[in-house]
Amino acid sequence: MASTSQQPLTTAEDYSGDASVHDARLVDAARRGDKDAFGSLVRRYERRLIRVLLRFVSDYELSRDLAQETFLRAYERLDQFDPSRRFGPWLFQIGVNLTLDYLRRRKRRGRWSLFSDSPAERPPDPEVVDPRQQIDLSQEVQVVLDRVPEKYRSVLILRDLEGFTTSEIAAILNRKEATIRWRLAEARTRFQALWNKRQGNGSAASPDAENGNSDGGSDSDELQAGEE
């Protein structure tokens, strides 16, 4: 028998001590083939994960599908997980990467043809609020967020909408914390310029924030200096 697994280890209720220690034990059990242990991890993280991914895709069913895919990949890559790290950021890193990949592919394919009735749809002219429907504040924020280039939008979503710390975001996006802080400043500046312009408050301040946003959040600023 080459079997090394199947020790009856941990159930979701077995909370003894710090959550990350508990995570580590569950991961360890899951790696040795204990599927129930992995199930406990799924149940522990799924709501937060779905919530975060929903911020990126604005489609509830899609965010659940992406979360499923995230857990499946996490399970397949458990042997690559470094047990000295925390499980949460590692999981969210997989999920956010997967979601960003998905969004890029969708964008390349042309979201207008395939997703023309997607909730993420933007009005043709983002500077003008569509008077036909009453858009609530969250949607309004989403519309403006969609205009912010991806690398800034991601940080803004994780920090200001989901409340991760900049060091957690650094782990999720696999960047230095200094880079994340720089992007965060840039993201908030760009968001405020677009937001206030759209609200008609007219206090568009940073000239940077207006560049690179004139054509629907293209990532044409990729080469912009100031990072790393």
Partner: peptide, 22 residues
């Protein structure tokens, strides 16, 4: 300007996200 836009973000953050308004 930043205070105004940050307030909007905070309001969006606090809005129930699992049943989006749209």
């Amino acid at each position: 300007g930043l205070s105004a836009s940050h307030t909007a973000l905070q309001a969006a953050a606090a809005a129930p996200v699992l049943r989006p308004a749209h």
